[in-house]
Design a protein around this nucleic acid. Structure first.
Lengths: 339, 339
DNA sequence: GCCGATATTGTTAGCGCTAACATCGCGCCA
DNA sequence: TGGCGCGATGTTAGCGCTAACAATATCGGC
């Protein structure tokens, strides 16, 4: 029985080694580490000491393989470069970390198919649960989630079916900003949209709704660009919009990036904000408060959404009844100088 | 031999099942999936078809346990909310993903001890390699890395020892911006620093060096605050600085966040930038180009650093000779309206 | 002092996969 | 035609851990 020892990472010290050094069996070490109440206090103490002394590092793969629970949660977000999702991530981390769960972060790059591919790939880690951004996953995605009975919580929006979710009404938020601009006396209000993910589209719906109510909806004022948004794009869209519709007196930008670019361009062109042109953004990023004039925006509870979604997931994982299937965390209209 | 079947996540379909369905042994399935050249084309095709058909998902834990390689890389960054590190992350992802490696992301919150704790925790996943931000890890951290012979690449700075690293000279970059302000005729140049991690301190050293060369270094103009930086802090620090030193004619902010807050406050207070007060930032975030006036900054190759660091690590993992132990990717002074 | 309940520790087997070695069959060359 | 080499596939064993069951030790009550 003389096999070549394999090269392997890790200390090479196993639970068995710890047991021997402490004069007990491996399973007792396992219990001392994971269910301390099942080992006598003196022995537990001794085992922990040996663990420390030998620098023992448990092997998660082996544990996972033997026990079925992975203590791992897969988090899928559309982008790493959008602060919105990073904030949510921070909220999630603040709940999962203390609970002993580790996050696997998947960046879908706003792509349905990549989202599906990531799910497939990360399934190899057999995550115990799933936190997903948005509600519009591909059928194959939903099928896998259903088939594997993967506990999942959906973030950033409110579902109309029975999927557990935490978010706010993107549509209502879009309508809210639009109504605010209407209240400021603006009638020719444009919509600048980029990226055009499901959330942007819902904000657009809210915008339309509010303008239709007020009887001044004009489809020609909807400017949509599926490319990723940027401040440069905001500036460019502003130029194009004003060239085509000089009578435009208000703009609702689907996010703050666009709005910051637009407001800077106004500054450069000497366009009076808000007198001549009122501008509203979305998300209330840090920078929104520091433009000239400061940008009105919709503050969204990203961090809290992350926290609540993670909590909801943990409840499912622990087999507890969920306190609530759907959590509407609302939003807040921040009125500043730009409107 | 009638044991209760265990509850477990995953499809429950194993490599063995796939093998049976395809009329081969499990190991052949394994080879068809991971080293296709060792299986005849026809058979491989058939196996892949069965895999697809059964919806087989390989179990990574089992693979890891049996094979020693985890195909996982641990990435440690100080913060998720700082775009700088997110950009690096994107670069890393763009290399690791296609190479079949998965990233484990650890957020150290700028804390040495948390960094060490994360290393310990993620060691349970037996990562094949390590990508770390900065060079100043705790001794215990270095000891673990050495002891486990963990391949590691350090990012964002240049080491003076033999650790492989990819970055640029923070000190030279700090000096570069300072010299630029000197060239603009400024003599009373302040330094605004927040967070005070190792990189900020090195920029500060560069600033001092440049001012000492020019014979106009005044320690009273160094304003340091260990709290996390923000635009608000930049504005506040500007107020405090000018209250104490009205003769100050230039400011080097250790990052763009501070600079954006400072420049906005100047705008509010009617301070002429750059005539009365020149302002320089660091990192060249997107927003830097959209302040009024636009912010001069040091553009740093974050994405490329991530790419290069990941490549270097892969070379180590594959046992290849590293093309280079130390990679200086430089930086670029972006001169805009604020100076 | 004996019985059973309870607390504590051990034994056995197996999670799903792959390294290492074994085997088989086929083609090629002398 | 025989033997050799090589490519393709199979067999065996075990990675490190834990669920389930087994075996003790301990203790109180009668």
């Amino acid at each position: 029985m003389s096999r070549k020892p394999r090269l392997r990472s890790g200390t090479g010290i196993t639970m068995h080694d710890v047991g021997q050094a402490a004069g007990v069996s491996a399973i007792t070490v396992s219990r001392a580490l994971h269910s301390p109440e099942r080992v006598s206090p003196a022995l537990r103490e001794k085992i922990l000491q040996v663990v420390e002394q030998l620098g023992y590092v448990p092997n998660r793969s082996a544990r996972q393989l033997a026990s079925a629970r992975s203590h791992t949660v897969l988090v899928l977000i559309p982008s790493l470069s959008n602060t919105v999702f990073i904030d949510a991530l921070a909220g999630i981390e603040s709940v999962l970390q203390p609970a002993g769960y580790q996050m696997l972060i998947g960046n879908t790059h706003y792509s349905d198919s990549e989202e599906l591919a990531l799910l497939r790939a990360y399934l190899q880690h057999s995550p115990d649960g799933l936190l997903v951004t948005g509600l519009n996953q591909l059928p194959a995605f939903r099928q896998i989630v259903a088939q594997q009975a993967l506990p999942a919580v959906y973030m950033m929006d409110l579902s109309e079916d029975d999927r557990p979710c935490v978010g706010f009404s993107q549509e209502a938020a879009g309508a809210s900003m639009t109504r605010h601009l209407l209240e400021r006396g603006k009638r020719r209000i444009a919509f600048l949209g980029a990226q055009l993910d499901e959330r942007v589209i819902k904000r657009l719906h809210g915008y339309r709704l509010a303008l239709q109510e007020a009887g001044c909806h004009d489809p020609a004022l909807e400017w949509l660009n599926p490319s990723p948004s940027s401040m440069q794009m905001g500036a460019d869209m502003l130029d194009a919009l004003l060239a085509a519709h000089p009578d435009c007196d208000g703009i609702f930008c689907c996010n703050d990036d666009l709005a910051i670019g637009a407001i800077a361009r106004c500054q450069q062109r000497g366009i009076a904000v808000p007198a001549q042109l009122a501008i509203g953004g979305f998300n209330d990023l840090q920078a929104a408060a520091w433009t000239t004039p400061a940008l009105s925006s919709i503050a969204t509870p990203r961090f809290d959404i992350g926290v609540a979604a993670a909590r909801l997931l943990l409840q499912q994982l622990n087999g507890e009844a969920m306190t609530s299937q759907k959590l509407d965390l609302g939003f807040q209209l921040k009125i500043r100088g730009s409107s």
